[in-house]
């Protein structure tokens, strides 16, 4: 029904870029799924992509069984504090990172297999009142946390054994940092968004705060997802989970904004709307593609360079979709419902 309501402009070539069902897994022991993701896992000389599912009290690792099944290999039980999200660690092997807490993140833990003890285990990486956490390439994790007096931004270099090899502090801006995104192709550059609707840039090597650039007041509470540097400009993909629908523009799902880091000036480059009449939740971005679960229970996919909705996944056999995440390595889109059903789609 939702697909029929979409105007032709939003889905002008759905056949070319639609989502193709690949495989499904179902965790019968999952009372309420909170997140889904993928992780590269090396075992017996072979590296493969595995699915990770999380409920409030347990995180499970699934291996692919050809042709199109998944088998649960291990479940880490984390009963003391609820799991809030899986934190993807790009390019990292054999490590699953999870954030735990009540209303906000209070702990970040690594889940892993220890060959020394021939057992699965988990280890604590950070505690505190954590407002944002993101995994970066080269086994790094960046987080913002706050005390009554100050905000602390920290990059942790993770070890394969689940500990930290090194820690680097970043200079905090005055406003609370709400999200981070690494700059594609620039290992030492990091961007973030703040509660005051600014984009900030750091040098990860030195910890310097290089620039704070205000986004404007049109779309408050912007969240950064990805950033790309090209031709002297910084292109940042933003979502606006709390923006209100307007008659002239609709509801923004994702925007691409170009910043000149030298002057701090910016201009909107691309604008992706939610389908008419839909509201959305926080989305996920991979490469040049965005996805978000709509409150209707459908998943929408956008081509961020063309600024259009390119695919729509209606609610699945298990009911409304509640989660969507891009799988690592271009493997496709994971859609999950609260009952523990996860489906992988090729995009």
């Amino acid at each position: 029904d939702l697909a029929e309501q979409l105007t032709p402009e939003l889905l002008d070539s759905p056949r070319e870029e639609s989502l193709q069902f690949v495989s499904e897994l179902k965790d019968p022991s999952c009372a309420c799924a909170v997140d889904v993701g993928t992780v590269w896992w090396a075992a017996a000389g072979c590296r493969e992509l595995r699915v990770v599912t999380a409920s409030e009290s347990a995180v499970s690792l699934w291996e692919p069984l050809p042709p199109d099944c998944w088998a649960k290999i291990h479940t880490w039980h984390l009963a003391e504090i609820p799991v809030i999200q899986i934190v993807p660690l790009p390019d990292t092997c054999n490590l699953v990172c999870v954030a735990l807490g009540e209303l906000e993140i209070g702990e970040i833990r690594l889940l892993l297999y220890s060959s020394e003890t021939d057992s699965f285990k988990h280890s604590l990486v950070k505690t505190g009142n954590i407002t944002a956490v993101v995994g970066l390439k080269d086994q790094r994790l960046v987080s913002s946390s706050r005390t009554m007096q100050e905000q602390q931004l920290e990059v942790v270099l993770l070890s394969e054994a689940g500990g930290s090899k090194d820690r680097q502090t970043l200079m905090p801006p005055e406003e609370t940092v709400t999200a981070f995104a690494e700059v594609e192709g620039m290992r030492e550059a990091l961007v973030g968004t703040t509660a005051g609707n600014s984009v900030v840039i750091w040098n990860l090597k030195t910890g310097q705060l290089l620039r704070k650039m205000h986004i404007g007041y049109s779309y408050p509470a912007s969240i950064c997802h990805r950033a790309y540097s090209d031709s002297g400009l910084l292109f940042v993909v933003l979502s606006h989970p709390h923006a209100k629908e307007s008659e002239s523009c609709g509801s923004p799902a994702f925007r691409v904004v170009a910043f000149n880091p030298r002057t701090g000036r910016s201009t909107g480059v691309m604008f992706c709307c939610l389908p008419p009449g839909c509201a959305g939740r926080r989305g996920d971005v991979w490469d040049r593609t965005g996805a978000a679960v709509l409150t209707s229970g459908a998943v929408a996919v956008w081509d961020l360079l063309r600024g259009r909705c390119s695919a729509l996944l209606p609610p699945g056999p298990a009911g409304r979709w509640a989660l969507c995440r891009w799988a690592a390595g271009g493997a496709g889109l994971l859609a999950g419902s609260h009952d523990g059903t996860v489906r992988l789609y090729r995009y």
Partner: peptide
């Protein structure tokens, strides 16, 4: 995007801002 909208553009913005920012 043009320089008139965004001001002078530098391909080495990251190195330049790192040299100028407080340590």
């Amino acid at each position: 995007c043009s320089e008139s909208d965004l001001g002078p553009i530098s391909l080495n913005w990251f190195e330049e801002l790192s040299a100028e920012a407080p340590p």
